[in-house]
Design a protein around this nucleic acid. Structure first.
Lengths: 135, 135
DNA sequence: CCCTAAAAGGATATAAACAGTCTTTTTGGT
DNA sequence: ACCAAAAAGACTGTTTATATCCTTTTAGGG
């Protein structure tokens, strides 16, 4: 359980690749897709989502392509993952506690909150700079 | 992302309810289902899975029903969740590192391992006894 | 101004997973 | 033998995942 989807995997691969390039150079989507071995049409959708929230900047037309929207050390893995997979929510009740508070069953609630918090902390502590470094 | 399915929710509700009963008394599936507001046919499937791995003991025929397989303090939330949702695997690559090690992209790998480990630790630290207590 | 390169957006297709139901079989008690 | 209860398996409808394709918009270059 708790599995990242393909979309999430591709998203990470794509943007980490971008983070490994010079910050001032645009990359063609088709090049990125080929480099990280992801269907270009699918990656296009993903990068559109990135673009909307400013994780990447896009340029159309001849000479166009993508660049990181911010320096790689200022983009966390958490942002990338949540951009395409939605917020980290181990359980509905963490999002909507209304439905949950009644009945003593919900000793479970705080546990899911801890899970959420731990995961966010791990992912939030890693930047694209960390990930792009080639050992 | 990382959401528990209905099955997982129902599983927790059902077994936590059971943990709140005396350890030596069997409960009818139909009663449990009604008490925790879960479709009985669905809960049946879930308890079958529990039964197979010994989380609960089942008795057939007249006077039959379900009991916890072990004292509630010896069953963790992790076991319950993994019983019905499968192992905690934030990313395929955590399960099958073979496909992952090449290419410098996989600085991501250890991050998912940490996520997995943190989640397991939180869920593993909570027992049914903790959850069954009515405040 | 037109042609081409590139991303944006929308519609569609297929497959898998989820959520649940129904029926039949097995087992145990009376 | 009969009844009560869980086990097991087949089946169904809905939603999500995983794409692909096509048209539109934007930008640059000749």
């Amino acid at each position: 359980m708790m599995e990242l989807t393909r979309k999430g995997e591709y998203a990470i691969r794509g943007i980490v690749y971008l983070a490994g390039k010079q910050t001032d150079k645009v990359c063609l989507l088709s090049d990125i897709a080929e480099a990280v071995n992801v269907p270009p049409t699918f990656l296009a959708k993903i990068f559109q989502q990135f673009s909307k929230i400013g994780l990447v900047k896009s340029y159309r037309g001849t000479g166009g392509g993508f660049m990181l929207g911010r320096p790689p050390e200022q983009i966390t893995l958490l942002e990338v993952v949540e951009a395409v997979e939605g917020p980290i929510l181990p359980n509905r009740c963490v999002a909507a506690p209304t439905d949950c508070e009644r009945s003593c069953d919900c000793n479970v609630h705080p546990v899911w909150q801890r899970v959420q918090s731990e995961v966010r902390q791990v992912l939030g502590g890693v930047s694209l700079k960390d990930l792009a470094i080639c050992k």
